[in-house]
């Protein structure tokens, strides 16, 4: 298989795992946040908007360091979660997933928010008069109509997670087999003599995965769009 070494293969597998978890775990919160930002009419909305977008503007190293302070072994949240729920982030792949989720979150929310804003509220009113309570209106009308944007948001988050470097290496370091994802592995290869070949191989894989994700999202969004008669 492309002549990948065991070490490289591990990095690819780990990256996929981290990115998938980061995307899946932040999906519910992402949908909820996007909905609040699109529909909310209270003073806290601007504050929430700023908070969500912070990782997009902050240097990734800063985000990673903040995560280390909060979720590290000695951090207030990290020690609480470790003691009460047995969830440890520090120097584990779960920490890499957390870092990737935080970095991908603004991208995910942006795309979803736009699609929620584009949903015709009058259709929701119509559903209400037909007997659907607000929750059912959301599930049967709002969510399906916003689907193209939700898919786009997930793919963006996934792609960002596949490529996340700064926050991940700051928060959980670069441990082969545990926290060494594709980008950090490439970085490592470029630091050792004779590592160019491995770096190139992983780079090609990185490009292929990103392109694949974008193509899949394009296809899914187009299919959803065609169903809505807008494509």
């Amino acid at each position: 298989m492309l002549g990948l070494t065991e070490e490289e293969l591990t990095a690819v597998r780990l990256s996929l795992k981290v990115a998938l978890w980061a995307t899946a775990a932040s999906l519910p919160l992402g949908v909820l946040t996007a909905l609040v930002l699109a529909r909310g009419r209270f003073w806290g909305v601007s504050l929430l908007n700023g908070l969500v977008h912070l990782p997009l503007i902050l240097p990734p190293v800063v985000t990673g360091y903040l995560l280390l302070l909060l979720f590290g072994r000695q951090g207030p949240l990290g020690s609480f979660l470790a003691e009460n729920l047995g969830i440890v982030f520090a120097f584990r792949w779960t920490g890499a997933a957390l870092a990737c989720a935080v970095m991908g979150f603004p991208l995910m929310v942006r795309a979803m928010r736009l699609s929620f804003e584009a949903v015709d509220r009058r259709l929701e009113q119509a559903a209400g008069t037909l007997g659907a309570n607000p929750l059912w209106v959301f599930v049967t009308v709002t969510l399906p109509l916003a689907l193209p944007g939700i898919i786009a948001g997930m793919v963006l988050c996934f792609a960002k997670a596949m490529g996340e470097f700064g926050a991940t290496i700051t928060f959980v370091s670069n441990i082969p087999g545990e926290t060494q994802t594709l980008p950090t592995a490439i970085y490592t290869f470029t630091q050792v003599p004779g590592g160019d070949e491995g770096a190139v191989r992983l780079t090609l894989i990185s490009v292929a995965v990103s392109m694949g994700a974008l193509l899949v999202s394009e296809l899914m969004a187009r299919q959803a769009g065609r169903r809505l008669g807008t494509a």
Partner: peptide
């Protein structure tokens, strides 16, 4: 309320 509402612009669910 059980009122059937026929809107001016139809408002059919496009999906």
């Amino acid at each position: 309320r059980r009122v059937g509402y026929v809107f001016q612009e139809g408002r059919l669910f496009p999906h």
